[in-house]
Design a protein around this nucleic acid. Structure first.
Lengths: 241, 241
DNA sequence: CGAATAGTGTCTCTGAGACAGTATTTT
DNA sequence: AAAATACTGTCTCAGAGACACTATTCG
């Protein structure tokens, strides 16, 4: 990594152009069957009034801690959120003021109430991903990277369970795939498949209190299983193969 | 990302603790059937004398450009190397001198001569990944991340072709999978599979000049095809399913 | 010649997807 | 009753893996 000539003990960091390091978070959830992303409205220039991903400076903490802290500040506490590093965006000029390295994180959240504006954010709100464009800075690209990661990740990991409540039905889980992929898997085959993948879901023995709103039997309730990867994977129908 | 209160127009970056930003590169190649990684020997403290991943400071350039530039400086020019961002390592204390954000890159290189020590590196050399441990800083973890990425990536992309010459035989391609995965796919099934995946390889019409060293027919020569993803994928035999 | 290897044939088993059918619950 | 939905049965086809076989070329 750091080479000898450039980074001697006597090296003075202040002799180099300053670089700011931030984390920006693509937080996804599903509301009314639609994939939503958490955005904040910028109050200051540049890009005042535009929507942006929540984020902030990295302090004396790990990057993961920084992401978790920022997310908690924006939305109130988030106990069971899945967080993972996505990619780092640091091209010159992405922020007009100075060089900013943004370490993007991806978060999968279950359905939550409206975000509590506890932190810095002037106004944080959920926005359907279809209508989230024209974001500040290069956040359109960061969001796109997060969406693609999420779509790929629920294929071979049980992370779709991070979008639903602790106990859920197979139909609710299917709703996650429908919302994230933008297309509905075949209900019957999906059902059998989910139950056949070892460790994906665990039966609770309970069922829902009533059937669907427009009829239908009560469904069994499941919990997330202990598998960390899905074998075999659930592959997206499209993505021309 | 950057919030209003913390990053006003009058914000003074020098008021914050300085952060250095580097790129570190996991460069993989195959030498004599063994997966090797490019390492440099550190001349200065900390970790003087230990091996480390090559890398250096990010200048006024994109992160991809920084990685490509550093790699060229360490190894002489690299025309057809595949480079991709891996992850960012920036926990406090990973460098004892100051906060250093390292944006790790992964490079797939065809077999190359010994690296030309054109750049900063005191001594750069290829090291079999099996024997590459005890690296400086947190480079063991970065290397591990690179290896796992490489192993997964050749499953569903044609990037294994980045490890071989422009024209190659199926057996050479199989050697790539053997070296990267650490286990040999079944020769006959591998052969048929590679030819059956659309766009993985393209027939050149030519064959090798002679058969194997210990006998066997001449093999056909192929070039990389135009596929960017492999359908269906080549899955690792192990990785208990 | 004997050994090694390229490339192909074939069989079995798993799993994906299409489709249909049954049971249960709603309005 | 009619509609909706949970869940299951069954068929077909693609593909993975095991194994065997032929053809070619080396020492």
């Amino acid at each position: 990594m750091v080479t000898e000539r450039e980074f001697l003990d006597g090296y003075d960091p202040r002799a180099y152009p300053a670089v700011a390091v931030t984390v920006d978070i693509v937080t996804l959830t599903i509301r009314d069957g639609v994939l939503n992303v958490l955005l904040v409205e910028r109050g200051e220039q540049p890009h005042a009034g535009r929507l942006a991903l929540p984020g902030g400076f990295v302090r004396e903490e790990t990057l993961d801690q920084a992401a978790r802290r920022e997310l908690a500040e924006e939305t109130g506490i988030l106990p069971r959120v899945h967080l993972e590093q996505l990619a780092t965006f640091g091209d010159p000029g992405r922020d007009p003021r100075m060089r900013v390295m943004s370490i993007a994180y991806l978060a999968f959240a279950p359905h939550l109430p409206e975000p509590t504006v506890g932190g810095d954010a002037a106004a944080a709100r959920w926005v359907p991903v279809d209508t989230a464009s024209g974001l500040a800075f290069d956040h359109d690209a960061i969001l796109a990277a997060g969406l693609e990661r999420a779509r790929a990740k629920i294929e071979y990991t049980p992370l779709a369970t991070a979008f639903v409540d602790d106990e859920f039905t197979i139909a609710q889980l299917r709703g996650v795939y429908t919302a994230v992929w933008g297309e509905e898997p075949h209900a019957g085959n999906f059902h059998r498949k989910v139950l056949s993948v070892p460790g994906f879901v665990a039966d609770t023995g309970a069922t829902t209190q009533r059937g669907g709103e427009r009829g239908g039997p009560r469904s069994k309730l499941y919990r997330a299983g202990d598998a960390r990867i899905l074998h075999p994977a659930l592959l997206r129908p499209s993505l021309e193969r």
